[in-house]
Amino acid sequence: MAKQSSQFDYFKSQHIPELTVLQAALSDFSYDRHAHEEYAFGVTLAGRQDFFSGGQFHRSPPGNVIQFNPEEVHDGQPGGESTLGYVMVYVPPTQLEALFADAVGCERAGRFRSNEILIPDPALRSAILDLAHFVTGQVGSRIDQEHALYQMVTRLVQRAGKFQPGSTVSRPDALLLRAKDYILAHLEEDMSLDAISQAAHLSKYHFLRLFRQQFGITPHQYVLNCRINAARNALEAGVVPNEVAFRYGFVDLSHFNRRFKRIYGMTPYQYQRSVTN
């Protein structure tokens, strides 16, 4: 019997701005390495979820929680012969900063980052599935969704133990942040590696080595990833795919379609139709 084709369904919360839920069934699809601007909280429902993140490969069995911090590079594919089923909740940092600060009891905890990627935690799993159910089923009120978010945040903080204020940003990290800021400010322009490394005040060779060591992808892959993320936001705002492709420097709509699908599992038009209906 032939395997069914992979399926992807995206849902936007009606109550919490920019919160998105993905329900996916993967049998013949592998994600390219990429990173999201949001926090991502997932639960493996069936099959096995194999992926690379944090410098190593991971395998997530059914019932396990996966958590990615913003801009944490990862990929993903089914492991073994069974179809991989999972749900993923994407939450923008602005929606979580106050919740993290409140759960930790420290204003500086707004940019909390979990050190765990694979998390076998029933309470966290339950909160994620509750939130996904509210969004995909369009049931419950805003306070129901906010409560599920708070339960997720509280559990992450409990697992992390006592909050330790972040240390001073190192010089290499500060230089790479300049490069990231430059990239984000010039997404609609034709950027060069020379210009990006100059913005970071690094030689091209030193910049390439540091960047790949820090983020696990090349600057070119990072630029492409940022353009895809910006394109997704434009699609959600109703901008037609042809215009989005032109705005963010893709050769043509076909090129945009291929790149977008490697990260979101569907074409820009399909994604736009799924989240704006």
Score class of each variant (00 low, 15 high):
Arg232Ile: 05
Leu193Lys: 11
Arg48Gln: 12
Tyr182His: 14
His133Asn: 14
Phe215Gln: 08
Ser126Ile: 05
Leu156Ile: 05
Val65Glu: 00
Ala195Tyr: 00
Tyr248Ser: 06
Met152Pro: 07
Leu129Cys: 14
His74Lys: 05
His15Pro: 06
Asp181Ser: 15
Pro172Leu: 01
Asn69Trp: 03
Leu22Glu: 04
Leu99His: 07
Glu37Gly: 13
Arg142Met: 11
Glu81Leu: 08
Tyr269Cys: 08
Glu71Gly: 06
Leu193Gly: 15
Ala35Gln: 07
Ile228Met: 07
Lys204Cys: 11
Ala109Glu: 02
Gln214His: 12
Val104Cys: 02
Tyr205His: 15
Phe207Arg: 01
Glu81His: 09
Glu146Val: 09
Thr267Met: 03
His74Cys: 02
Arg108Tyr: 10
Arg108Leu: 12
Tyr86Thr: 01
His58Tyr: 13
Glu243Leu: 13
Ser170Phe: 05
Val135Ser: 06
Asp102His: 10
Arg111Gly: 12
Val139Ile: 15
Gly249Lys: 03
His147Ile: 12
Ser82Phe: 07
Asp194Met: 10
His201Gly: 08
Glu72Tyr: 03
Leu45Tyr: 05
Gly47His: 00
Leu208Gln: 15
Gln221Leu: 08
Arg262Trp: 10
Tyr205Phe: 14
Val65Leu: 01
His206Ser: 15
Ser167Gln: 15
Pro172Thr: 02
Tyr90Phe: 15
Ser192Cys: 01
His255Leu: 05
Leu202Trp: 00
Lys12Ile: 11
Ile183Thr: 09
Lys204Trp: 06
Phe207Gly: 03
Val87Met: 04
Ile263Arg: 15
His15Asn: 11
Leu210Asp: 11
Ala245Trp: 00
Leu131Gln: 08
Phe260Pro: 03
His186Gln: 11
Phe11Lys: 02
Phe134Thr: 06
Ala174Cys: 02
Gly238Lys: 00
Val251Gly: 06
Cys226Val: 06
Arg212Gly: 08
Thr83Gly: 00
Arg232His: 07
Asn229Ile: 10
Phe11His: 14
Asn242Ile: 11
Val239Ser: 08
